[in-house]
Amino acid sequence: MGALRSWSADQQVALLFVVLFGALLLVSGGAVLVSLRERADAAEARHQRFARDLRAVWVSAVVFWLAWMSGPVGATLLFGTLSFLALREMVTLMKTRRGDHRSLLLAFFAVLPLQYVLVANRNFDLFSVFIPVYVFLAIPVLSALAGDPERFLERNAGIQWGVMVCVYGLSHAPALLLLAFPGVDGRGAFLLFFLVMVAATAQIAQELASRRLRRRPVARHIDRSFSGRAWLLGTGAAALLGAALYWITPFKAGQALVMAAIAGGSGTLGDFVLRALKKDAGVRWWGNTSSVTGAVGLLDRVAPLCFAAPVFFHSVRWYFQLKP
């Protein structure tokens, strides 16, 4: 461990990726071996689900690696594109009307690029109020100018919400890469990695726990598997992993534990909330195995990150009194 600390930041990050992809390769190799065995239908279905989740992890690992490789500009562009695709999917699920056209144009072609430009420039102060303050006012004004009062509140709330989740939330992921911690410059990748790992762990642990526990679901009509205890277990698992990973972060072990719990817990709650949204929109399958809107299911993948990233980012900034 001591030798590792003397390495340069770049070397440490490189080691991180070697370990990450090595572990993924091992798991995938194991999955291939398991898939050779004959199984009953139930086990087959379970394996299919696992294989799908594993693919998603691969995709996110590659995205993460690309984000690091391409530097601040590349990372911003990459997450900007993800934001665009996620928002596109979210808007597809909404019941927008003709009068929303201008507001949507504003959201897609002005707000989204501007927010990411602010990230790339590290204007963290403006970045954290741009959407909640300025865009919050601008969108309903444009909608009102379009002159369509029908379901005005509902439509505007929908657009606001989509922008908050898909643009504001997700833009905090590249912001983490650029957040300057005193004394640990160039290690933003570790923070993002930490966030993604704990969010994913919380998600997986919660899923496993709810399958094992078979508790009464809190909200049966939204998610048949979500229960309070499963959520606590997921958050706890995230916290433990966070504490175990404290050495890659600027935190001390206790701080890492709390931060991981915050990120993991908000990620799984965000996922839960998005399930409610999809139910409302009439999409019955999570992950879009059968596509109703033609949506590709990207939103499902980034949902935990959309909620975990801003909470995590602002917790870190507030607690450590970081100035841009």
Partner: peptide, 21 residues
């Protein structure tokens, strides 16, 4: 063709990104 009227309603010139099938 589904959803396309939401992408570009009559009278508008710039399309809004919305998934169509």
């Amino acid at each position: 063709i589904d959803n396309v009227q939401r992408v570009m309603p009559k009278g508008e010139v710039v399309p809004v990104p919305i998934l169509c099938t």
